[in-house]
Design a binder for these strands. Structure first.
Lengths: 192, 192, 192, 192
DNA sequence: TCCTAAGCGAGACGGTACGTCTTGTCTTCCA
DNA sequence: TGGAAGACAAGACGTACCGTCTCGCTTAGGA
């Protein structure tokens, strides 16, 4: 039993590595299963025995990332709202390759979505005690925050990878908390 | 010349209609070219003579939408920031079918991206005179606004299609201009 | 390994049968690959996994014929020149369907050429010890004999399928060995 | 009427020239109609207005060749059998390009067949007075002679274009009139 | 000299085959 | 006997070609 498990584990590891490597090279959408199993040196049926498809493998492969990210963010609950965002940007900085590959092309929605799902958990927790005041339902606010986070992430990795995480994080916090409102030209201020 | 154009126009119209109809039925990604030309009753080579592929057809098909939207938004320049958003939501309400189909599945990135591209033009114009104050580059702010807009749009059509455009627009404006900041629980307010 | 081979063999057999059947029905050139795989109930990619194209399949399908023919002709070495021709005509008589289909239309050059290639081997062997006397190079004589053989075969199957192989063979031998010379009207004899 | 004909004639000439030129360059089978009309600078529909297809054009284009060949052979009736063969080989020598292109690949059956049809007329005329003696029907003899002629032609142009027409003609005459019989090794002579 | 019908180029079009690719299933082999 | 290997059916993709067609320009021949 153990040996079989060990074998299975090796197979899974090989597939994860292959996916990572290929995604980094050519983006998630462009990776075909044939390439994947060839790179991992694994039979086709073996792949399907372990995963339901490319997406499943991706999700599973993200478990590590997710765990790591979750671990780092778990303790960060303090007075500062969305404190975890800083952690996330720093995490991304440490794994530029894979993050960049995933956010790179618009085709990688699934990959981006996966990041979003992880973040959603945290945002939801943080916003769980707020009310639907201001006429904006909580779910909308959650999606708004996550969207903004991912937006920043994408822009950062794609256009200004040189910026330090702290700076991007500052932008995120500014936008998420205060919007773009008070940076509009004076004449156009909305009367509140 | 005109008559040839007229013939070509008929073909293109047939293809656009077919795409719309099929996208509404099963989502953009799921539509195959075979289905498309069958629905449009057009030869395969004819399709490729007019468009480079499915994506090209989509983009071209959006030209109407874009024009319509642009037309509607063009005049809306007033004191209210992002006035066009209201127009957009109302436009979406009038074409629920196609908007919903496009935002429905995560697979429809291309379609969503197309909407985003249209909106970006307008947001950019409106933000063109602002400065990079607050440490947030203009491009980031543009992307942030568009992202928020699309986010709301998706959420609306997917979860609360019953809401009137005005209400969704209010949410959008609130979030884009002021963020989620002042709706956080008192204890967590960030000190500015 | 064997069982995989067995599966592959079944596929190949199905394709051979389909080709034979279709060629008999409508001639080699008219058979499309779509028909072929439909008739054989085989996937398109499977076909291309086994054969490079229609021609390759044909050639491969001929291996049996070739083997059979070769087998029959192998032992026929005696004092009679071109003894194998009789064997060939008899073989054709036994497989009228496929032979007729192949020689039927002028489009079936490839099929006819395949027969020619088989025959060439035997003719070459038989003429291998002769010299280029009479000013006619050996290769020319080989091609001449094979051509005559194929010519007769075509004529027989197309115009007089009722004739017994022996009679056609007699004609072939007469023409190949002595030409049409001494059956010319007396007045036109060439002075040698 | 005449001028219209003159215009039509120009079109036909252009197409013939184009066909000749293209066939010489890449062989009959490889020439597509698109290339043809492009080379001739003629509209697609115009082509189909004049000819039913590539084959029809070829046949028509051969009319000149045929006429020329026929002209040359017409007078050559003398005591020597198959006197016209010499004329044909010489004619071929004078038009090596097109002859070679046509006999080059096995795909050019149609072109070769066209030559055969011309020759058949002459052979038939010459053999018209002979009887079916020797058990070889006249039609078979005709086909045999034509086949041999074409065989030689092909071999000549393909393998030994350096040989003078006279020599090839001698081979042809030897083979057609006397076969390969008496050049067999002594031990294998058939007893007549 | 003007007018009309034909010849023509240009090329859009429906149809269909091709060879390549990918996906998920299913059969066979081997440890 | 259960996991690995890979053969397979299905079918989409973009390209090529065919024969039909529609269109408007040019031009020749009769009025």
């Amino acid at each position: 039993m153990q040996k079989i498990d060990r074998r299975a584990a090796r197979t899974r590891t090989a597939l994860h590595k292959a996916l990572l490597s290929l995604v980094e090279r050519k983006g998630y959408e462009e990776v075909s299963i044939r390439e994947l199993i060839e790179e991992a040196d694994v039979g086709r049926s073996t792949f399907y025995a372990h995963y339901a498809g490319k997406e499943d493998l991706l999700r599973s492969g993200f478990d590590n990332l997710r765990r790591e990210l979750a671990e780092a963010m778990k303790e960060e609950q303090g007075a500062v709202p969305f404190r975890f965002s800083r952690t996330m940007f720093e995490h991304a900085a440490r794994h530029v390759g894979i993050y960049h590959a995933m956010t790179g092309s618009p085709g990688n929605v699934i990959a981006i979505g996966e990041i979003g799902r992880i973040l959603t958990e945290f945002v939801r927790r943080e916003l769980s005690e707020t009310e639907d005041d201001g006429g904006v339902p909580r779910e909308v606010r959650i999606q708004f925050v996550v969207g903004t986070l991912v937006n920043l992430l994408t822009w950062w990795l794609e256009r200004r990878p040189d910026l330090p995480p702290a700076e991007v994080d500052a932008m995120f916090r500014r936008l998420a908390l205060h919007g773009t409102g008070d940076i509009l030209p004076t004449g156009m201020r909305e009367n509140r």
